[in-house]
Design a protein around this nucleic acid. Structure first.
Lengths: 146, 146
DNA sequence: ATTAAAGTCTCTAGCAACTATAGCTTCAAG
DNA sequence: CTTGAAGCTATAGTTGCTAGAGACTTTAAT
């Protein structure tokens, strides 16, 4: 049995994050030592590794919750899991496409900047006037900060 | 002078977002009508368009705050604005690279899924075991949901 | 055996960048 | 003159954590 700190070190998940996952029900409530400290089995470790890996691949906690509950029912069809993964792929592809456009626009912007005064700055000017852009990169959803 | 609704429609920014920008000091406090409703000039409209455009390009509100205060001092050097834009470019490039890896991994995952039972599901299996991955896509910062 | 340090506990609040809700007032059209 | 849309304030919720306070437990060195 591992303490929360050891578990976190092994799974590369921070301790408060583990407690947070328990709090939102992504991890089951841990057993406790006599001194009330959490203790984890290898099974719990695997579950956490699963979560960590899925997070690394960009799945939301909601999607992970679904994937975990699927993995708890090994006899059912795998179509739902497949659908979640495909949806994530579509999501990643769309973000990728969008970022590629942004990258091009930002490159154009900084290349054109001659480095003079603000009044002549292409960066400021382009930001103020979308029609100076090469592409229509506008999008309903704003980009989330990484 | 525009009401907040008209302004939002023109700049494609939602009304509560405009009020939020005012609240955090990104937009100056708007003039008010006799009935206490906000009224906006063309200048305010331009400022909001600038913000919207910068958000579209993925700049954080903090970066936008800096860019706006730079654009208010047209005689200063444009180096700072250039630096902010370059930093954003670097950021976008790194997210792009990371997403490309995720995409490849997700593609592999869904391609391998034969569509049987959960017990045989590659998606679930790969998520549970990182060593099945082609690349080490692990990363300190988790991806933010778009 | 003692003590200091490190680890753990709960609880609360904070981050970005909004979005939603409630309950009110004001405005514009018919 | 009424009705419905649009506006107002204020508060709380979203996602996925992260940071702190203040108390307790465990471990390691003395």
């Amino acid at each position: 049995m591992l303490t929360i700190g050891k578990l976190g070190a092994q799974a590369r998940v921070k301790v408060p994050t583990i407690r947070y996952y328990e709090q939102i029900g992504l991890l089951p409530e841990a057993e406790r030592s006599t001194g009330n400290q959490r203790l984890y089995s290898r099974k719990a470790m695997e579950r956490l590794a699963f979560i960590r890996h899925a997070r690394d691949l960009g799945f939301t906690l909601e999607a992970i919750r679904d994937l975990l509950s699927l993995s708890d029912r090994p006899d059912q069809s795998c179509a739902a899991a497949d659908a979640i993964a495909r949806a994530q792929l579509v999501e990643v592809e769309s973000r990728l496409a969008r970022l590629a456009v942004l990258k091009a626009e930002l490159e154009r912007m900084v290349l054109q900047c001659a480095g003079g005064r603000i009044a002549d700055c292409r960066v400021i000017e382009v930001l103020g006037d979308h029609s100076l852009c090469a592409t229509d990169h506008r999008h309903p959803e704003a980009e989330a900060a990484a």
